[in-house]
Deep mutational scan, measured.
Amino acid sequence: HNGKLCKLKGIAPLQLGKCNITGWLLGNPECDSLLPARSWSYIVETPNSENGACYPGDLIDYEELREQLSSVSSLERFEIFPKESSWPNHTFNGVTVSCSHRGKSSFYRNLLWLTKKGDSYPKLTNSYVNNKGKEVLVLWGVHHPSSSDEQQSLYSNGNAYVSVASSNYNRRFTPEIAARPKVRDQHGRMNYYWTLLEPGDTIIFEATGNLIAPWYAFALSRGFESGIITSNASMHECNTKCQTPQGAINSNLPFQNIHPVTIGECPKYVRSTKLRMVTGLRNIPSIQYRGLFGAIAGFIEGGWTGMIDGWYGYHHQNEQGSGYAADQKSTQNAINGITNKVNSVIEKMNTQFTAVGKEFNNLEKRMENLNKKVDDGFLDIWTYNAELLVLLENERTLDFHDLNVKNLYEKVKSQLKNNAKEIGNGCFEFYHKCDNECMESVRNGTYDYPKYSEESKLNREKIDGVKLESMGVYQILAIYSTVASSLVLLVSLGAISFWMCSNGSLQCRICI
């Protein structure tokens, strides 16, 4: 991952900044910058967002509201009850120091605090018919004063009620008058409520006091790749198909172990950190130390980045220098085999997901714990399936590479015959000098055995068991695999060879 928040398929997220979902939807004055928000790819909250409900109280069923919003990608904020005409018999300019803005008392931008007009609070009834052709999110509140005197001074009615009804919602609220500790300079409380109004449905408000009335509502448009994440990451000019709280993932790998919460087309989250597919040879310690064997393909974004291909070729060293050249036929066979294998694994496992966190309130801790156990169970199954699949494929890959290298080895052996000696570690020792032209003939299969047989015969008789390297004779190393990324691999195959001279070296080696 890149540690950044990015656009998702070209669409920017909605960053709530210092506000949370509650503050944004109710219209906390400190969240005025969010009022123009219309569309987004996903919503970003920060872990310690401080601006929620400015007048103390709870947004009821907040967790369910977050779940609903996680599939919303755009909205239209509109005046559901026009301020100047909807409440002619009531005062609608209630403000509070708890919702101060720029040093002055204020109130929510989407709600109206209705109080008595003169000395009376006549029963009010108002309704709205949803003609938007889509779901409408309606929010309101109920004020709970701290004393009967406060109730009387604001609403005149000691036994007030609030009723809200639609086809799918029907509740009646009565204020709970009680002494409470002071929070944000208030002994009173406000509880906030919401409902989704279906197209064509009607919502009716009736009250004799204590109503925090809707002013603006939201017509919602769903987008199934949307979601809500909690993150401290910063926004950058970048684009992605998959976003996590820790950063964007741009990967076609089937798995990731970065974060379980994802938005967009994302690899499946697994616990494993070692889900690797081999593309090189079986481990040979001396070669492995030099980083030549054991190439791997990573299938977990965050564990290993991208696929690494092994390729086969020849390396030689003689009086004229040293050089490398790919054996294109065996390399292409290996590439085709690995590509098919990788595609097979991805096809089997690479279903892209959006995974969002589930919200539970403080009273639902047991449910949250149960949900976590269920999620953990599914996660263990996914991890096991992934590891088992790759384990089985790896064994076949190792066998496949062994065969490829063996074929190259036999190709060289059949040409050199007794003009060189096998020394048991995949290397041959020449009994004759071999210049670049000679080396090329070994690589392309045109090695002239009779041409060098007499010199080889004489050297075999002279050496008589002495280690060949100390006599200045020449080696050919018969097994060799270097490691390159897919891009470098293609470039390498396009070149005939490249040279690395070893000044004054008397050794001649050709490596497979």
Rank of each mutant, 00 (worst) to 15 (best):
S231F: 07
A233E: 02
H236E: 14
T244F: 04
T244N: 10
G247C: 00
I249Y: 12
N250G: 06
N257E: 06
I258F: 01
H259Q: 02
S272I: 09
M277D: 09
G280F: 04
R282C: 06
Q288D: 08
Y289P: 05
R290M: 08
L292H: 00
A295N: 07
G298L: 05
G303V: 02
T305H: 14
T305Y: 09
G306I: 08
I308T: 12
W311K: 08
Y312V: 14
H315V: 04
E319I: 05
E319F: 06
Q320M: 08
G321P: 03
S322G: 07
A325P: 04
D327N: 08
N333S: 11
N333M: 09
N333Y: 08
G337W: 00
G337N: 02
N340L: 04
V342R: 04
K348C: 06
Q352N: 03
A355Q: 14
V356W: 07
G357Q: 07
F360T: 04
N361E: 01
N361H: 12
M367H: 06
K372T: 10
F378Q: 04
F378Y: 10
I381S: 02
I381H: 03
A386Y: 03
L388S: 07
V390P: 01
E393F: 05
T397P: 04
D399N: 13
D399W: 08
L403V: 09
V405H: 09
E410S: 13
K413L: 02
S414L: 10
Q415A: 13
K417G: 14
A420T: 03
K421G: 08
G424M: 11
G426C: 10
F428A: 01
F430D: 07
H432N: 00
C438G: 08
E440D: 13
R443I: 03
N444K: 12
N444Y: 07
T446N: 06
D448T: 05
P450W: 04
K451G: 13
Y452C: 07
E454V: 10
E454D: 08
L458M: 13
L458P: 14
E461G: 12
K462D: 11
I463C: 00
E469A: 13
M471F: 07
Y474D: 05
I479R: 13
S485G: 12
S486V: 10
L489H: 05
V491K: 00
L493R: 02
A495H: 04
S497N: 10
S497C: 15
W499G: 12
M500D: 01
S505E: 13
Q507W: 05
C511P: 06
C511L: 01
I512Q: 06
